[in-house]
């Protein structure tokens, strides 16, 4: 039971990360390899705000906004000039940003593991059947579900959401009907960066922050996107929940081969559905 809840909580973190990555890929055609760096940047920025102001909640609001701003600046200044050149140049560029951010974080905060305690309201544990479960992890699960619901409403029920869904399908056609897709690209990239940072802040009281955290989570996030299908919110949620459970149970039962299990799950899904659970064939 506790294991399943841990998996659910971890899955929610993966969802916050992968939903941005999958929408960015779907719309901009860019696999943003710096996505994990936004996660790490969010974690460290969150710690800074929490330490400076003493408020975890303020950190949860401010850090994602800051990182979203960083994401918007990167998209506009570095990625946008490269769209005409096709995806390779951009993927390479985002790869470069992994090192830039890694160095930046080490320079600013050193290589130590850092953490902050969960806010007082969410400290402690609750009894759950025979065992006990940290309140904060329950908060993460509910928070992830709330974000998923809000994102779904924003995508399905608003005009901007319709533009994003249309843009994931056929961005050129959206432009041909008068939509300034470049601006929407920036907004999607910034939102994805902000969500990754949100995951980073949320993760800090559980997993602490350390310089390699971005790359570590990037691999998982990419696998989630592949399992769920590129460009799909539903797929990103399903893939996150599956991988969250697979990795958590894998670590408990077969601690030495949990990575093997993750790749096994991915291979199994791809064998059954080559485009991922909610993916569509690329045109």
């Amino acid at each position: 039971m506790a294991q399943a809840l841990n998996g659910l909580e971890y899955g929610m973190l993966l969802f916050l990360l992968s939903v941005g990555l999958t929408l960015i890929f779907g719309m901009l055609g860019v696999v943003n390899l710096a996505h994990g760096s936004f996660y790490a940047l969010g974690a460290y920025a969150g710690i800074a705000v929490a330490v400076f102001t003493g408020s975890f909640w303020l950190a949860l609001c401010v850090a994602p906004l800051v990182v979203a701003g960083v994401g918007a600046a990167i998209e506009r200044s570095c990625l946008r000039p490269l769209y005409a050149r096709g995806p390779n140049a951009q993927v390479l560029l985002t790869f470069g940003f992994i090192y830039v951010f890694d160095d930046l974080l080490r320079w600013l905060w050193g290589s130590h593991v850092r953490s902050v305690a969960p806010p007082a309201a969410l400290a402690g544990v609750v009894a759950l059947g025979p065992g006990r479960f940290p309140v904060y992890r329950i908060f993460v699960i509910l928070f992830g579900l709330a974000v998923a619901l809000l994102l779904w409403l924003a995508l399905e029920r608003t005009r901007l959401g319709a533009i994003v869904r249309a843009g994931v399908w056929d961005a050129e056609m959206a432009a041909g009907l008068g939509v300034n897709v470049a601006r929407v690209f920036t907004a999607v990239f910034a939102a994805g960066a902000g969500l990754a940072a949100l995951a980073g802040v949320v993760a800090v009281p559980i997993q602490a922050a350390y310089p390699g955290m971005g790359v570590e989570i990037l691999v998982r996030t990419l696998i989630v996107v592949v399992i769920g299908g590129l460009g799909s919110l539903e797929g990103s949620l399903a893939g996150s929940l599956i991988l969250g459970q697979a990795e958590t149970f894998g670590k408990a039962w077969l601690p030495d081969s949990s990575m093997f299990i993750i790749y096994g799950v991915m291979a199994a899904v791809l064998l059954l559905r080559p485009t991922g659970l909610f993916g569509r064939a690329l045109r």
């Binding site: 399908w169 959206a174 041909g176 009907l177």
Partner: peptide, 21 residues
């Protein structure tokens, strides 16, 4: 988008409807 907003409408070859919509 700027050309479209100036008053040019497009019905492209193959229709290119937005399938998710």
């Amino acid at each position: 988008y700027a050309i479209a907003r100036r008053g040019v409408g497009l019905v492209p070859q193959g229709r290119r409807l937005f399938a998710p919509l």
